[in-house]
Computed example of a mutant assay.
Amino acid sequence: MKTVATIFFIIFIGTAASAQDTNETVKVDTIEMGIVTQTTPSVIKERMQEVARLYKFKNSRIKKELSFATKRNSPKMA
């Protein structure tokens, strides 16, 4: 009885889903834009000074974080 009800439910949902009307068309408004032929050079008036840190070893922070060891990594005497 359960299988018959399940098959009936699946067929009912399938026919209800295929009966939906999806023929609606949506119109999109388009905008025409012309081509710009004149270009002006952009001038940066204000320059910010940024501080850069120099490390003695390349990727020292990354290597330190990747080389961590847990308590279970150490060998134990049997």
Rank of each mutant, 00 (worst) to 15 (best):
K2M: 06
K2T: 09
T3H: 06
T3R: 06
A5F: 06
A5Q: 13
T6V: 12
T6K: 14
F8I: 13
I10L: 14
I10P: 02
T15V: 15
T15H: 12
A17C: 13
A17S: 08
S18A: 12
S18P: 04
A19T: 04
A19F: 01
A19S: 14
Q20K: 03
D21T: 02
D21V: 01
T22C: 08
T22A: 07
T22V: 05
T22H: 02
E24N: 03
E24A: 05
E24V: 02
T25E: 11
V28S: 15
V28F: 13
V28T: 14
D29W: 00
D29M: 04
T30S: 10
E32Y: 04
G34R: 08
I35C: 05
V36F: 11
V36Y: 05
V36L: 01
T37S: 15
T37K: 10
T37Y: 04
T39K: 10
T40I: 02
P41V: 12
S42K: 11
S42Q: 15
V43H: 14
K45V: 07
K45F: 07
E46P: 02
E46C: 01
M48V: 15
Q49C: 07
E50S: 10
A52Y: 14
A52L: 09
A52E: 12
R53V: 12
Y55K: 07
K56R: 12
K56F: 03
K56E: 15
F57L: 07
N59P: 02
N59V: 04
R61N: 13
R61W: 06
R61M: 08
K63P: 00
K63G: 12
K63C: 00
L66A: 07
L66T: 07
S67N: 14
F68K: 09
F68C: 05
A69L: 10
T70Y: 03
T70G: 15
K71C: 02
R72T: 11
R72P: 01
N73T: 04
N73V: 01
P75E: 03
A78I: 08
A78P: 02
